[in-house]
């Protein structure tokens, strides 16, 4: 398989935040000016063009208030609005990520040193929730492979396990009599999935530091898998030989597989996965229900990894 090399973006080409936030109005004014003058204003949007087609989309970006106000993060409560409302006490600094297991060079990373050492890119990805809704989110982050390469996985390492922080004093969903899931939340990837160039550790959205409700200070984004694979507020990463347990798979194995690849042909036991509701479009009427794409539209990039697998069995 050819290794994908993300294009290098010189800092001179990175769009300032104010311009970036206004790019829709730039595009609109470009359209208003007509085709003859289109080329000049589009040049201001150079960064998007430079990120390549795998990492962006021409689908409209989901509004900021929806991306940061409609979240599944049970550590802060079960309702979609709970994470935004109940994550105010959460303190994502200081923060360390412990990386150990089958590696030559186990390390504990300080989040700020880690971010400073990485080239933070923007990746505009579709995000498909297992609950049959979807968003388009501009993430900031860096490939997970960049971190894994620093710890040098041993040849015996086949999987990567992740753990979310446990802080009942700061996370109301983790305290009290009623506990929906066993903590910590756990997730896992096969090593080739973890090393895939589309797999990122995200540290921001919309050019801003990652809000608490989205998994501050660092969360996983695997755009061809259902959203629950995108474990949030990561404190521990362990390289393993065996497939690690993942929270939803353990909780309801008939409903949530370890792989959880977006697949319109494998229904959830309770609903079809053939279509999805795109969040933040059209409100009550004219809501946007669209066909779900195989591997969430990233089949060209990732289908090779599953060439010999029965995706109905390994869902």
């Amino acid at each position: 398989m050819a290794v994908y090399r993300p294009p290098h973006i010189p800092s001179s080409e990175i769009t300032p935040k104010d311009v970036w936030l206004n790019r829709r109005s730039i595009l609109k004014s470009a359209a208003a000016l007509g085709a003859t003058t289109l080329a000049a204003p589009l040049a201001a949007c150079g960064q998007e063009a430079a990120t390549g087609t795998s990492f962006t989309t021409d689908e409209p970006i989901t509004p900021y208030q929806d991306v940061t106000g409609y979240n599944n993060f049970y550590e802060f409560g079960l309702q979609k609005t709970d994470p935004a409302r109940h994550s105010g006490d959460f303190n994502p600094r200081p923060w360390t990520i412990e990386v150990d297991g089958l590696v030559n060079n186990p390390r504990t990373f300080d989040i700020d040193e880690l971010i400073a050492s990485q080239m933070i890119e923007e990746r505009i990805y579709r995000m498909r929730c297992v609950e049959a809704w979807s968003m388009v989110i501009p993430w900031n982050g860096f490939p997970l492979s960049a971190l894994l390469n620093q710890v040098e996985p041993l040849s015996s390492a086949k999987y990567v396990a992740f753990e979310t922080v446990v802080r009942p004093e700061e996370m109301p969903g983790q305290r009290g009599f009623f506990q929906p899931l066993p903590w910590p939340y756990r997730e896992g990837l096969r090593l080739d999935e973890a090393m895939h160039p589309l797999t990122i550790l995200s540290t921001g959205v919309f050019g801003e530091t990652l809000p608490n409700q989205n998994g501050a200070p660092v969360r996983l984004v695997v755009p061809w898998k259902y959203g629950f694979k995108g474990i949030k507020s990561i404190v521990k990463i362990t390289l393993t030989e065996q497939e690690p347990p993942s929270t939803w798979n353990v909780s309801a194995p008939s409903e949530y597989g370890f792989y959880a690849n977006v697949n319109p042909d494998v229904p959830h036991p309770r609903w079809s996965q053939a279509t999805e509701r795109r969040i933040g479009t059209g409100g009550f009427f004219g809501a946007d229900r669209r066909e779900t794409l195989m591997f969430n539209g990233y089949a060209d990039e990732v289908a090779d990894m599953y060439a010999d697998m029965d995706l109905t069995r390994y869902f």
């Binding site: 929806d66 409609y70 979609k80 809704w133 509701r277 409100g283 009550f284």
Partner: peptide
């Protein structure tokens, strides 16, 4: 449009 992000 006062039923939040996912009104339906």
């Amino acid at each position: 449009n006062q039923l939040g992000t996912d009104p339906v």
